[in-house]
Amino acid sequence: MTTSTTKTLTATTSTTQKVNQTAKRLDRIAKNVIFGVSLVSISIILLILVFTFKEAKDVFFDAHVREEVLPTLIGTNWQPVSDSPKYGIIPLLIGTIKTTLIAMVLAVPIGVLSGLYSVMFAPKWTKEVLKPAVELVAGLPSVVIGFFALVVLSGWLQALTGSPFRLNALVGGVAISLTAIPIIFTIAEEALSAVPQSMKEASYALGATEWETAFYVVLPAAYPGIFAGVLLGLGRAFGETLIVLMATGNAAISSWSLLDSTRTLTATIGAEMAEVVFGDPHYNVLFLIGTFLFLFSMILNLIAEFYVKAKLLKKFRGG
């Protein structure tokens, strides 16, 4: 009797030990797999840079391509498909700057002010309409916004401005602002609601009204966060492709007029990559533009991430 109990006990203990060991081994394996997969996720950002630049590097390192591309790269003529092709990116840069600027001139005030409205003034029910509405705007596929700009908005704006071109930088810019607004709103709103209650109370205690507190206390206090939102909105606006492809007329001309047809860096890649010969100088230049877009978005992110975060922390911790 006693021996059998002891036997059973020993057996149980060893089984438990075995189970424990398996669990521990599984635990170790899980930890390593999870870590490995995470590394794959972050290495993607490097892979993007490496493989975009890999297809662009011939512009600098291949004697033949270099000779064909570099002399005309900083020029005002973008004529990649001709007997003596020219790869001047200045008209494309101007196009990108124009549409992005128009978009930001609209998106920054609308995004920030509506964020302020949501945090400071909005009754509960409007907040419950506004926030899902913003999320749905953020969820609008850019091809749908582009389609709307092409078919409807361009007509309205042409009637308003009397522009000879139906599709121009203004139409593109106004449409792009719709993609930047949700980003700016969301981040501005977050920054504005993070302003400590005590700051608002101090302002009220000094006799300030609600709107004075909103504009003179809360808005300045949230400035670094808002700035970060604006930078991310900017990144979204200049990287937008489908809208400009559909609504700006796609003419690569060096004109600063908002009512001229225009073409951006992104639209050039989108429109020409499908027809280009692999390994051609033209192909290399399109990838070079892509590399530039990647690096620019990365710089915007860096500033938003580090500079702004440091500033924000300092402000609220009073350090």
Partner: peptide
């Protein structure tokens, strides 16, 4: 890396898809 990835223009992903 994640926040950067979120900011990369979508057309660049297209280039990456083609190149990689």
């Amino acid at each position: 890396a994640v926040s950067n990835l979120a900011g990369v223009p979508s057309i660049v992903f297209g280039l990456f898809g083609l190149g990689f």
